[in-house]
């Protein structure tokens, strides 16, 4: 188990759900893992899980919407481990509702954009200099299948569409420096976030209806895709939008994919 041997990976939002799944998998494959999360309880628990399994990890309390937090995250990681080879931008929120756009408040819009899009901007901004210095790196952004098709969560989809575009621009700008940037677009994954959304009952349709694979995804499904993109196995892959969605959106997404 050494597909990420020698790498130093920062994973945001690693205190829960998909981020925790990615952090555990990366540690299992030999990476040093920096668990960055706004929530100390969740973050510390992820670190404990990794250490108990024999991996190396430490927790950094970071609100990705605060530039100074993110700058400190990058600095601390360099001081502690000498480099940053992989950045996984996973921290994110979902309003969990399907309000139509004329019903969305400015505050709700700003909150989603701040965490899901500006947070990714900050993390890239402060980590990329370290990757340039190192002579390469891999950025894996957790967008969403919502970025690829037509769906009910307007602000959320817009924020994730922004992540997808930002990913492609980073791939374009930094390719010659051997820095790759790709996004994973998960479909429904069973996590505290999606359980909360389902529990509050505001989804107009069961999100599972449109899938080929007859189940919700698990954090591990996303973790394996992230592992592929973080590792040198994907050294010729950049600017990809990798769907890990149980075959969902199979009609709607095509217009974006085969243009």
């Amino acid at each position: 188990m050494n597909r990420l041997q020698g790498k130093v990976s920062i994973i945001t939002g690693a205190g829960s759900g998909i981020g925790r799944g990615i952090a555990e998998k990366f540690a299992e494959e030999g990476s040093i893992v920096v668990v960055a999360d706004a929530s100390p309880a969740g973050g510390e628990e992820t670190v404990e899980l990794i250490r108990a399994a024999g991996g190396t990890a430490n927790f950094q309390q970071v609100d990705v919407t605060k530039a100074e937090d993110v700058e400190r995250l990058a600095q601390d990681t360099i001081e502690r481990y000498g480099e940053i080879s992989v950045l996984v931008n996973n921290a994110g929120i979902s309003s969990g509702d399907t309000l139509r756009i004329h019903e969305v408040t400015e505050e709700a819009w700003d909150r989603i954009m701040n965490v899901n899009l500006k947070g990714v901007f900050f993390c890239c901004k402060y980590v990329l200099p370290a990757m340039l210095e190192r002579g390469g790196g891999s950025i894996v952004n957790i967008a969403s299948a919502a970025a690829m098709g037509m769906g009910p969560r307007a602000a959320y989809a817009a924020s994730k569409g922004g992540v997808a575009s930002l990913t492609r621009s980073i791939a374009f700008q930094y390719g010659e420096y051997n820095i790759r940037a790709n996004a994973i677009c998960p479909g429904p994954v069973d996590t505290p976030m999606s359980r909360a959304a389902r529990a509050n009952g505001t989804y107009k349709q069961a999100p599972i209806v449109d899938l080929c694979v007859d189940r919700r995804g698990e954090p591990e499904d996303i973790a394996y895709a992230a592992l592929y993109l973080a590792s040198d196995e994907s050294k010729y892959v950049t600017s990809d939008m990798m769907l890990v969605d149980g075959g969902a959106m199979r009609l709607r997404a095509e217009q974006f994919r085969n243009n």
């Binding site: 791939a171 374009f172 390719g175 790759r180 479909g187 080929c212 694979v213 995804g217 698990e218 499904d221 895709a225 994907s234 010729y236 892959v237 950049t238 600017s239 990809d240 990798m242 769907l243 890990v244 969605d245 149980g246 075959g247 199979r250 994919r257 085969n258």
Partner: peptide, 13 residues
């Protein structure tokens, strides 16, 4: 296991 009906470009961007 959760990936189907997708196209994965491996094309150097």
């Amino acid at each position: 296991a959760y990936v189907t009906a997708t196209v994965l470009p491996v094309d150097g961007g």
